[in-house]
């Protein structure tokens, strides 16, 4: 595939980079990334990946835009309230970059659809809010050997890790099982500073771009934590656990389980 003059101009700041170049931009154009959750994390990730010219971007979420989303979910606007988030997101992404294909999936990830959802993508971004969803995505990606980016945000803090199955630890190596419902505060009860999604979701997009182009080192084997109040980033080393329930030597989890219904309501997990 050859780039048109217009494409060369659109992607010029990428192509100039030694680590990306023409080859890297081609890989981005041929790349396929799935974003699960079109919220605080998914919004900036979707915008940057669309702008970067990722060939196919899937975005999965069954929710509609709510007024309380707009403080941080920058892909949605006030007139979008009530619309499906994935439709609102697709419109913005296509407006930024008409050259890409956006696949809107108006579903919540669950144990029945997750393997179908992630198949056909090179990289998955977990932009979900609930722990069952995060464990579901982790387990499915490990089982399907699909690289993905985990992230979480709350109050003034965020965390991020990249999992490349069989090459490093997974989310379950860090947290063996989800916490019981309401045992740990969620965004709705505890609040979150709007720009936190921008910081962490953008880092997820960064990992997707690095994965597709091969630039630099991925955030595997470490959890990056960010505290906005002290303005500290810390990279904490993580080792794979031999006894990990899904990526360990004798996994007890061999197929994705559990639902991923909305949890920030404080309702059952």
């Amino acid at each position: 595939m050859a780039f048109s003059n217009e494409q060369l101009e659109r992607y010029s700041r990428h192509i100039i980079l030694k680590e990306i170049g023409v080859k890297g931009q081609k890989r981005l154009s041929e790349g396929r990334v799935l974003i699960i959750g079109a919220g605080g994390l998914g919004a900036p990730a979707a915008l940057y990946l669309a702008a970067a010219g990722i060939g196919v971007i899937g975005i999965a979420d069954a929710d509609a835009v709510d007024l309380s989303n707009l403080q941080r979910q920058v892909i949605h606007s006030t007139p979008d309230i009530g619309r499906l988030k994935v439709e609102s997101a697709r419109e913005k992404m296509e407006a930024i970059n008409p050259e890409i294909t956006v696949k809107a999936e108006p579903v919540f990830a669950d144990s029945d659809n997750i393997l179908d959802l992630i198949s056909g993508y090179d990289f998955v971004i977990d932009g979900t809010d609930s722990f069952p969803a995060k464990f579901l995505i982790n387990d499915a990606c490990v089982i399907a050997k699909k690289p993905f980016s985990h992230a979480g945000i709350i109050r003034f803090r965020g965390q991020l890790m990249t999992c490349v199955p069989q090459e490093g630890p997974c989310y379950r190596c860090v947290f063996p099982a989800p916490p019981p419902p309401d045992a740990v505060p969620t965004c709705r009860q505890a609040g979150v500073i709007g720009a936190m999604g921008g910081v962490i979701g953008s880092l997820q997009a960064m990992e997707a771009v690095k994965f597709l182009t091969g630039a630099g080192q991925l955030l595997t084997g470490s959890m990056l934590t960010y505290d906005a109040l002290s303005m500290e980033f810390r990279k904490i080393r993580i080792k794979a656990r031999d006894g990990c329930e899904v990526c360990g030597k004798n996994p007890s989890i061999t197929k994705p389980a559990g639902g991923a219904a909305p949890v920030c309501e404080g309702i059952a997990l």
Binding site: F3, N5, L8, E9, S12, R13, I15, I16, G21, V22, K23
Partner: peptide
């Protein structure tokens, strides 16, 4: 600029 250098990079590729 910067399409000047971009075109060179594409040609050299």
């Amino acid at each position: 600029c910067p399409v000047t250098f971009v075109k060179v990079k594409v040609a050299m590729d």
